[in-house]
Amino acid sequence: MNVLLIYAHPEPRSLNGSLRDFTIQRLRQAGHSVQVSDLYAMRWKAAIDADDSTDQDPDARFDPARDSKRAFDSGTQREDIAREQDKLRWADTVILQFPLWWFSMPAILKGWVDRVYAYGFAYGVGEHSDRHWGDRYGEGSLAGKRAMLVVTAGGWESHYGPRGINGPIDDVLFPIQHGVLYYPGFSVLPPFVVYRSSRTDEARFADLCDALGQRLDALETTAPIAYRRQNAGDYEIPALTLREHIAPERVGFAAHIE
């Protein structure tokens, strides 16, 4: 299996750095091919702008969607963007690893998504009609691939529980798992979350590696989160709201899981 690890932490000697090293070693020992995009080490440019295409007219108004589509279609994307897209095409499974900062991913990782997910590559694909609203949410260019988050959080697990003050971890991660990953077609595996990350000694690190190792060993067999497919009949098109008879007792994020 080909595994792409997108890693976003500025300190290689951190807990995240140690977990990254463990992940690479475990996967390679199991016979998998691994590529790593270490965004801080790569000095990844996070901001999407007119410089992301090599043929941008300096006098033209910059339109992020339109210009990314033109650059993608014409082969005039910046080399760093095209290289990451090639990695995604190569990968069978993608792991996003990052610390949870202000209830989301670090800006450098969000910038990776903004720039690499070009119009025509990760969104804006497929037929748009009164019966099919684009290839997304379970379909799209990345369908058939798997993805998983490896996340560290400073708070206690109870802080992210069903009644925790930070909100349930599944809700906190929903925009990333359902939006960033499921939208372009990934089958999304349950996340691996480390709580109280700053309270990790050698004994706890060994336990974390054991648990993470079990998850990595099961990448090919773990059942993905059962998100509803957009074009499979559960949603009214083009309103894209759940049909009245589908989980009528549920609202919010939970309604979009079977």
Rank of each mutant, 00 (worst) to 15 (best):
Y7T: 01
K69F: 10
L109A: 02
T76F: 05
L39S: 02
R146M: 11
D63W: 11
A8V: 03
M1C: 11
V36H: 12
R163Q: 07
Y117D: 03
H245C: 09
H9W: 05
Q85S: 08
K45T: 13
T222A: 15
A232T: 11
W102L: 11
H132N: 07
R61T: 13
I169Q: 00
A30K: 04
Y195Q: 13
G252F: 06
T152V: 04
F253S: 04
W112I: 02
G155M: 10
I246F: 01
P162K: 07
V188N: 00
E79P: 02
I48L: 15
G17S: 06
D114M: 09
E11K: 08
L208E: 07
L88A: 10
P224G: 11
R215P: 01
P106H: 11
G154V: 14
Y195N: 08
G138F: 10
D130C: 05
A122G: 15
Y183P: 00
G31T: 12
A239P: 04
W156D: 14
G167E: 03
A71R: 00
W102C: 10
Q56R: 12
A218Q: 15
T54E: 12
Y235T: 13
Q56I: 09
T23M: 13
V194D: 00
G252T: 06
T76L: 07
L88K: 02
P175E: 08
L142D: 00
A91T: 04
T93L: 01
S129C: 09
L208Q: 08
A254Q: 09
Q177T: 10
T54W: 03
D52I: 01
S158I: 13
R28P: 07
D52Q: 07
E220R: 10
A223W: 03
I246E: 00
A223G: 04
R146E: 03
V113S: 05
F186Q: 00
G179Y: 10
D201E: 06
S141F: 04
E127K: 11
A247M: 12
W133H: 11
P162V: 05
A50V: 11
G167I: 02
L88G: 02
I6W: 03
A226E: 15
A147M: 09
I257V: 15
L142V: 09
E11D: 14
A143R: 15
Q230H: 12
R89E: 15
L142R: 00
L208F: 07
P248I: 11
L216Y: 01
P106E: 10
D49L: 13
L88P: 00
L27H: 03
G126F: 05
L242G: 06
S187Q: 14
V3Y: 01
R146A: 05
I257A: 02
P175L: 06
M148K: 05
P12V: 03
D57C: 08
L189G: 00
C209M: 08
P238W: 04
Q56T: 10
S104G: 13
D207T: 11
K87M: 15
W112G: 00
D49E: 13
G164P: 04
V3F: 03
R66I: 08
R196G: 13
D55A: 11
D171C: 04
I257Q: 05
E236M: 13
P106K: 06
S68K: 02
G31C: 10
P58C: 09
Y117V: 06
A218S: 15
